[in-house]
Design a protein around this nucleic acid. Structure first.
Length: 734
DNA sequence: TTAGGGTTAG
């Protein structure tokens, strides 16, 4: 058994797990572990000071070839390596031995020899043997370090081949044990320096042992080449070797780094770990939790947090905080608080970060009192609020419309020497925008000025969006100018916001102009930009233009996303181009994207508008078979389809099935049903539906009241016409 | 250790 609390000889990571020898490890370690500091120490000769000499005598006796010429100054350095083993490097490692002499082993003759001779020679010529003899006393750890340094600084094929020749040479002269370990060092270092290809080539020169596999997989994962990593893992498994737990950690980390993680993928990885009988240590479980957090799957994240605790281990505080933070963003304050409490239960004192995470939960949940309480708790426990804490509190007051309280918090920040950032003001502005109080924008600007805070790009973006949403296009454009005047370059969000608000107000020409200007100014459109433009062209029924945009985005390496496909289905569907619409849905599936309920809603809605109830029903069925739950949106669209097709019986059948399946019909459901009745002239049944709507707890809105009124009007008209049509008859009778 | 946290498209 080895490696407990030691450092990995390859990646210098501290190994925390208790690891039996029969298990292969990604971080292979020699029987005698050397830390980086130790290795660096042995590279240098001690000064003639009493203490160090005594110490070093016990370790190794300096032996020729020695040189006072630093390797750093060797002419080889530039061609072979940038090995930097200066005094400064070593002293900063803090080992207690100083001052250092500049004397050290001189590897220049060896490297010179290796770079000029062919590695396969092995002819035992006298120079080579002499050379081998002269280096015999160099300890293994030193060779490892040299190799590592050379490999990680290799940048040209020539220097790599010299490094490779060194391994060969060491092996040939029995100078360093474990050929495989030397290779592993090489692969690891090459992988670490993003030279995965070279690592691959090297690995192909010998049969792969578990150690090499693990190192190679690790190198792939570190370089985000997961395809190769997975291939190697499968190959390894097929050959009967067990993959190391670290590989899984590295793969998850890579997925997280690159935003490529999703819940299903992570679950698959986890199943693999289980079937591989991987030892789930706390570090790996932490990565699993963080993976699920990044994937937005808070339930699974909490499950694995529970697994950590269930195993009697303690999750990293940062992991726990991430869980609270995600719960907070989802407005799940109670659970956030529960997880927060667990920090304290674990004997740790929550710090600002943890408090902020739970505070965010309350703010998103509208719990102003709880938010105030948690800030008081912080103060009571001597935890200092920071800029983020205050920002969240201000946002909470802003959401509650308590601008005065928010101002008091601003003053408190000032008193505590905490400067507010542009962020908090952008949040306030968003609050005003969404509540229709957009004119408060000017007040916010003034407040910022008072606090000496300059609006940043994101704030200006919100400003443009606010003006845009309230149709003040000139003001929106003026903000663009102001940004430029202040030296803030507009980004894609700025342009997208501007373009979109022009589209929404029907100014498609100006939108297109801005789309061109954006590119002229060197800002590359992103997928969102294309989606906005596709929507704009679709509204104008410029179908060739739509296809052109799709081509252009693909040329620029942008893949259509779920929103692109939904936009396409929507615009094609609205104009009755159902073939094109359904084709887009197929394309989406073909591209490997999971159709969302939104895309089906767009399709069902398109059929419904034209009274194509059979087609709408069919789309609804496909949606169900894709495993998507029917939402009120889809069901209401379906009711509307039956309504437009004058199939009121089927429309009411949907209502029944909604009730049976515990789906609560809403105002739109009832209003659409009333419309269905009016379509088939069953006016007298409308008031009953209206009454049922109120009884079921729905608040009638303008549209539902209008439907009732028009039904009553028709009823009166009918009565009147009946009266008139019967009148002559009576008169005649009379 | 720092960052955390904001804005756009269906």
């Amino acid at each position: 058994m080895w490696g407990v609390w030691g450092k990995c000889g390859l990646c210098l990571r501290t190994k925390h797990t208790f690891y039996p020898t029969d298990k292969p490890s990604l971080c292979p370690q020699p029987p005698v572990l050397q830390t980086k500091v130790q290795i660096m120490n042995t590279l240098l000769l001690p000064p003639p000071s009493a203490t160090t000499t005594r110490f070093l005598r016990h370790h190794y006796i300096p032996h020729p070839p020695l040189s006072t010429t630093s390797f750093k100054h060797s002419p080889l350095r530039s061609s072979v390596t940038s090995l930097s083993l200066s005094e400064d490097d070593v002293i900063t490692q803090d080992d207690g031995f100083s001052p250092y002499s500049n004397r050290r082993y001189d590897f220049s003759p060896l490297l010179q020899f290796l770079s000029t001779s062919t590695s396969s020679s092995g002819d035992g010529d006298s120079t080579e043997l002499q050379l081998a003899e002269s280096y015999r006393s160099v300890p293994a750890s030193l060779w490892h370090y040299l190799l590592k340094t050379l490999a990680s600084s290799s940048s040209s094929p020539a220097s790599i081949s010299t490094t490779y020749a060194l391994v060969d040479w060491l092996h040939r002269h029995n100078l360093c044990f474990s050929y495989e370990f030397l290779y592993s060092i090489l692969i690891h270092s090459l992988g670490g320096s993003e030279m995965l290809y070279e690592a691959f080539l090297l690995s192909q020169k010998q049969t792969l042992a578990p150690l090499t596999y693990n190192v190679l997989i690790g190198a792939c994962a570190r370089n985000d080449d997961l395809e190769k990593a997975v291939i190697l893992m499968n190959k390894m498994r097929a050959e009967g070797y067990q993959s190391d737990y670290m590989n899984y950690s590295l793969i998850i980390q890579s997925l997280v780094r690159n935003n490529q993680i999703d819940s299903g993928l992570l679950e698959k990885l986890y199943d693999e770990m289980i079937s591989d009988a991987i030892e789930l240590d706390v570090q790996l479980l932490n990565d699993v939790v963080l993976g699920f957090i990044k994937a937005g799957d808070v339930d699974r994240a909490m499950h694995f947090l529970g697994v950590i605790q269930g195993n009697g281990l303690t999750a990293k505080t940062s992991t726990v905080v991430s869980v609270i933070s995600l719960l907070g963003s989802l407005g799940r304050a109670e659970e956030a608080e529960a997880v927060f409490e667990e920090i304290g239960d674990g004997g740790l004192r929550p710090r600002t970060r943890a408090y902020n995470a739970v505070l965010k939960a309350y703010v998103n949940n509208g719990g102003l009192r709880d938010a105030e309480w948690i800030v008081n708790e912080m103060e009571r426990n001597g935890v200092l609020p920071d800029e983020y804490t205050y920002s969240l509190l201000i946002e909470a007051y802003g959401n509650a419309g308590r601008w005065e309280s928010a101002r008091i918090v601003l003053k408190e920040m000032e008193a505590n020497d905490v400067k507010p950032s542009s962020y908090v003001f952008s949040r306030i502005l968003v609050g005003y925008r969404d509540r229709g109080e957009w004119q408060r924008l000017f007040q916010v600007l003034k407040e910022m000025q008072n606090c000496g805070v300059k609006p940043d790009r994101q704030f200006y973006n919100v400003m443009i969006d606010t003006f845009g949403k309230y149709n003040c296009l000139d003001n929106a454009l003026a903000v663009l100018e102001r940004m430029r005047d202040e030296g803030i370059e507009p980004d894609t969000v700025t342009w997208n916001t501007l373009i979109d608000c022009h589209c929404k107000s029907g100014h498609h020409d100006k939108a297109e102009e801005l789309f061109d200007e954006m590119q002229q100014r060197g800002c590359s459109p992103c997928v969102a930009t294309y989606n906005i433009m596709i929507n704009s062209f679709g509204e104008q029924e410029r179908w060739e233009g739509v296809r052109g945009l799709l081509r252009k985005m693909k040329i620029h390496g942008l893949q259509p996303n779920a929103i692109t496909y939904t936009t396409l289905v929507d615009i094609y569907g609205r104009s009755g181009r159902f073939m094109d619409a359904t084709e887009c849905l197929e394309d989406m599936k073909f591209a490997g994207l999971k159709p969302t309920s939104t895309i089906y809603n767009a399709l069902i809605n398109a059929y419904a508008q034209r009274g194509l109830s059979e087609e709408a029903l069919n789309a609804f069925r496909i949606m169900r078979s894709d495993g998507l739950k029917p939402s009120n949106l889809a069901l209401n669209a379906l009711i509307n389809a039956f309504c437009e097709d004058r199939r009121d019986v089927e429309a009411f059948a949907i209502l029944r099935s909604m009730k049976e399946n515990d789906l609560k019909p809403d105002v739109v459901t009832y209003t659409t049903l009333m419309k269905a009745l009016i379509r088939v002239e069953k006016f007298d049944e409308v008031p009953g539906v209206y009454e049922e709507m109120i009884l079921s707890g729905c608040t009638p809105d303008r549209k539902s009241r209008a439907k009732l009124r028009s039904a009553l009007k028709y009823m009166r008209q009918r009565l009147k016409s009946e009266f008139h049509s019967t009148k002559p008859l009576t008169r005649a009778n009379y």
